[in-house]
Design a protein around this nucleic acid. Structure first.
Length: 330
DNA sequence: TACGCGTGGTG
DNA sequence: TCACCAAGCGT
């Protein structure tokens, strides 16, 4: 992983860069290593340190984050970079409580930065560690109720020496051996002390409370383009779903398919229904979108959004649901 | 406290 | 095809 310092380098005195540790840990929140890798490389190439990121334009950072999801992370990333630059002299504080007070840094990330970047003995508790602790101690209390007990177990196992290596090791164990399905107990370094393996309960742990079903919502978006190639887009409000991201103007998203929610087009034009539909699943609902397209007259003034000329438009700046709409219309 | 908040891989 | 899952945080 490009954000890791290999053991040999660390032994030779190369400490991890707190900026890179922080950036990788925020990207890794609820996100897989495979997905994060390319984003991490693009971010660090474009913004090599925290002051460079702090000086970036909001739209550039949101565009670079597009597709990674949980966009509040990107807004908080910028806030945090600016706080570190403006009030901490451009250096991340080597202090767990101070880290915890920064935007977008919660209990997990504060512990990860403390231990990995600063060698401070704080216990990380992510999904991997929860699973490892639940199995190691055969804890059947369902999540999230079990969290305090799992945290206590994780803290009691965190060593005073090399806590950062330990944190990464226990997460690696969860990611590669103590996996959610079909755990590889046969090659696990903790197979002897593991109570769940002894009792045969490992595959069913950790227990989780049942999740709510996802409702289906419906809506409509407008993809308008002028003869000069400019697209009519809008920057969504900072709060809520896809907050701060670029997107197509459209209707509210409602729970019933018919009638299609009333929505004034963002600009006067001869809008046509595009055959087909966009389907997308968010954290807590499924969405089905109807796509409207039109060529917009050169002298038209939009009621919503702004025109983005083709030279300045990168489809990769769009969140995935909006990029799906673009792909369908192309 | 419980809920809102994305996405892509996987079995 | 689809539910589950991933290195969580803010409100």
């Amino acid at each position: 992983m490009p954000w890791r310092v290999p053991p040999a380098d660390r032994k030779a005195g190369t400490a991890p860069d707190p900026y890179r540790v922080w950036l990788s840990e925020v990207m890794l929140q609820q996100t897989t290593v495979a997905t994060v890798r390319d984003y991490f490389e693009r971010f660090t190439a474009r913004w090599p340190d925290v002051s460079a990121l702090a000086a970036a334009a909001d739209a550039d950072v949101m565009g670079e984050w597009a597709g990674l999801g949980y966009y509040a992370r990107a807004r908080n990333l910028l806030k945090c970079a600016r706080v570190v630059t403006d009030t901490h002299g451009g250096a991340f504080p080597a202090d767990h409580a101070a880290l915890l007070g920064l935007p977008g840094i919660g209990p997990y990330t504060a512990a990860a930065i403390s231990s990995i970047a600063f060698d401070l003995p704080h216990a990380v508790l992510d999904g991997n560690v929860e699973r490892v602790m639940a199995r190691l101690y055969d804890i059947h209390t369902p999540l999230p109720d079990a969290k305090p007990e799992l945290l206590a177990r994780a803290e009691s196992l965190t060593p005073a020496t090399r806590p950062g290596d330990y944190a990464q090791a226990v997460m690696d164990l969860g990611a590669t051996i103590c996996t959610p399905k079909s755990p590889a107990c046969g090659i696990c370094p903790l197979r002897d002390p593991c109570r769940a393996r002894q009792r045969g309960t490992a595959p069913e742990l950790p227990k989780k409370l049942p999740k709510k079903a996802k409702p289906v919502r419906h809506g409509r978006v407008y993809l308008g383009q002028r003869a000069d190639g400019a697209w009519l887009l809008e920057t969504r409000p900072d709060k809520g779903l896809l907050g701060g991201m670029l997107g197509w103007p459209g209707s509210d998203w409602v729970d019933t398919a018919l009638p299609m929610p009333e929505s004034a087009p963002p600009c006067d034009a001869d809008w046509q229904v595009l055959p087909g539909e966009v389907r997308h699943t968010f954290t807590h609902f499924h969405l089905i979108l109807q796509i409207m397209t039109a060529e917009i007259r050169a002298d038209a003034t939009p009621d919503r959004g702004h025109f983005v000329d083709p030279a300045g438009f990168r489809p990769s700046d769009l969140p995935t649901v909006m990029r799906k709409a673009f792909d369908l219309a192309r």
